[in-house]
């Protein structure tokens, strides 16, 4: 499974989160929302200006900005 940054993932692509490399407020928020290593995600779409990105996580849809996605590494399936 190739590893890549969440920002580079294409629409419709799925994978499993490998690492979340950020602490502080942002890191906490990301983890609170269920984005932790081992979680399966699918890129559901992007906003009209390509940013933010919408993800399918667990049973919900989450959004995050590209610069926030930069902290997340994904093993793409």
């Amino acid at each position: 499974m190739p590893r890549m940054m969440l920002r580079q993932m294409k629409r419709g692509q799925s994978g499993v989160i490998a690492a979340v490399k950020v602490g502080g407020e942002l890191g906490r928020r990301i983890r609170d929302m269920g984005l932790v290593p081992g979680t399966q995600i699918t890129v559901q779409g992007r906003a009209p200006l390509y940013d933010p990105v919408a993800l399918r996580v667990l049973d919900s849809t989450l959004t995050l900005r590209n610069n926030e996605a930069d902290h997340i590494e994904v093993d793409v399936s």
């Binding site: 407020e25 942002l26 919900s60 900005r65």
Partner: peptide, 8 residues
């Protein structure tokens, strides 16, 4: 952060 939920 824009880490938000898009509710169904």
């Amino acid at each position: 952060p824009f880490v938000m939920e898009l509710p169904p």
